[in-house]
Write a protein that binds this DNA or RNA. Structure first.
Lengths: 326, 326
DNA sequence: GATTGTGCTGGTAGCGCTCCCAGGTGTGTG
DNA sequence: CACACACCTGGGAGCGCTACCAGCACAATC
């Protein structure tokens, strides 16, 4: 409305409201004593001038930082292209917006966890979101950011974390396969250094051991491409396999693509399951387990932004989603 | 290595290097005259102290802003959940990281483009990335941010834009269908208000008209769910359809899912094509056109960050990707 | 009436940085 | 030898904001 050549500052607001800058600051920031009269006048003036607090100035004086750093561990920088990571970043950005904070993603090489320290030492970093967290990273969070850090996908005492119940989800899947008569169940796993992936594998192993069945594992990396190759490897090593558990939906879709290309019927000859329940899973009729990434990311980002002191570990349940591939 | 209780400031660096703060600033920021000796001493001191410039202070004095705003137009806030948007946000965040800038996403309702002004008026906003841009939005970019704005997916004189060649990609697909003998070609379109989606539709219409064939259009929205419903509608209205062009891969996969569920052979009875070449397209053997979202987003974000004055419109070519669905 | 609160206000010192300006050197030109 | 002009430096102001502190009024208490 106002033809603001120069955007309004707190001084402008204070002058327009006929109070001091201090009072205006108190009203806007909402701390300290203010009379109803002053409150009202400052608010009106601010509205009229279209005043928007300057995030940089506020951050500077508060020593607060202006962005959330999403630090993703991985073997190569290409982890950042992953759709899971994309969702975490995008969701965090949504959560941060109302706080006037931005989001930044960075890759932390597996063999150089120290990179985390360097990245997080930037005073512009207001909080830390650890993804694909390794144990090494937990010890490298700068003291300044303790209490402003959360991890997605690892259980830890030092840093609050939020995760899906990988073990539970995988167990439900394996139980379902067993219940439907499968006895020669293979798994395409995730990278072994990833705690959350490991939990799935452990659930798989545990259940098979309990049933007196041998495990058949091929290492994967969540990708569809690796899933294709892994499918071949599984059938080469154990040709009588009648079910393949994928660590992710992408993996499973890769497996299915390869099997069908090789003339193997799914689920006729081999049942295949995924994990994540991505939108395409319903279209491709994939049996999978739910993985509400956005809810997880929202919970984690909120933990950081609000400095929730209490819940050290939040676990979202994973529900079995039955479709046709198994 | 230094036990930095308090993080190093430029003053600390200057003191350690034995120069004034001004000189240190010049060396770090890399502008103004500095002697090789001073440069070296300052750099060494900065390294030793682990100095990282304070983004907030820098932004404050430069009047610069601390984050890139990705503004996405759409009917509902759920556009922000879209995987395409996720990729744009995530890629932008990667591009912004080295600049010390964060990223924020916000939804601009179709029926309230003015929201854009309010969001962009925040002084913390250093640049603007418009996605799913409508004409109304172009006029609402605050003056302060002209020249710090780019649009993904619209051709416009007022704002530099970068986009995929939707028309060319779709034309290549339609030509391929025609060349392989299809004459009753339907299309599941995108939302009509979206310029970039419209270009695809126009290419489709133009080519059919040229060939003397009637257009068969059903409105979609890029989603797989809508694709399923649209497939039904196409076959209900034009039962003899022998090819369906999807506006996106998700749409196409939805179409395929529904067709197969209804006992229609793909590509035997009906050929189906997508657009985007998402990772799963190769797994599902979908014929499609490439759409390098990350390269597009990188180009757009870079335009904003570096204030490229020159290229008003960058168009990435879209290549036909032949697979088995058509 | 003196004293202690309680509620509110304005002045002011910075947060860490950049940038302008006034100066300092040293080298070349009239 | 004066002068211009390059290159380089330090001093200092100030970006917009918050937080601290002193101070004022008014009421409640002794």
């Amino acid at each position: 409305m106002t033809t603001a050549r120069r955007p309004a500052t707190l001084d402008d607001v204070a002058r327009a409201a006929g109070v001091s800058r201090s009072t205006a600051s108190r009203v806007i920031a909402g701390n300290g004593f203010t009379s109803p009269v002053a409150r009202d006048r400052v608010r009106t003036a601010a509205d009229r001038l279209g005043y928007v607090p300057n995030a940089a100035a506020r951050a500077l004086v508060r020593g607060a930082g202006v962005r959330l750093l999403v630090a993703v561990a991985g073997a190569t920088p290409s982890v950042l292209d992953d759709s899971y990571i994309n969702q975490v970043v995008s969701t965090s950005a949504q959560v941060c917006a109302p706080y006037g904070l931005g989001v930044t993603v960075e890759w932390v090489p597996l063999d150089e966890p120290g990179r985390l320290t360097r990245l997080a030492d930037d005073r512009g970093v207001a909080g830390l979101l650890l993804v694909n967290t390794t144990d090494a990273m937990l010890g490298l969070v700068p003291r300044r950011l303790r209490g402003r850090t959360a991890s997605i996908g690892i259980g830890s005492a030092s840093v609050p974390s939020v995760d899906i119940d990988n073990g539970g989800g995988t167990a439900a899947i394996v139980r379902h396969l067993y219940a439907t008569g499968h006895r020669r169940i293979a798994m395409v796993t995730g990278p072994p250094w990833l705690t959350c992936a490991t939990r799935s594998v452990e659930a798989y192993r545990g259940l098979l051991r309990q049933a007196g069945l041998p495990a058949r594992e091929v290492v994967g990396d969540f990708s569809a491409a690796r899933g294709r190759a892994a499918a071949r490897e599984v059938l080469r090593r154990w040709p009588d396999t009648d079910a393949i558990v994928g660590i992710s939906d992408a993996t499973a879709l890769g497996v299915i693509g390869q099997l069908r290309a090789d003339g193997v019927q799914v689920p006729g000859d081999v049942a295949v399951t995924g994990f994540d329940d991505i939108p395409l899973a319903s279209v491709t009729a994939l049996t999978t387990a739910s993985h509400p990434v956005r809810r997880i990311a929202t919970a984690a980002a909120t933990m950081v932004l609000e400095q929730r002191p209490v819940p050290p570990l939040t676990v979202f349940p994973s529900a079995l989603v039955l479709r046709e591939s198994a």
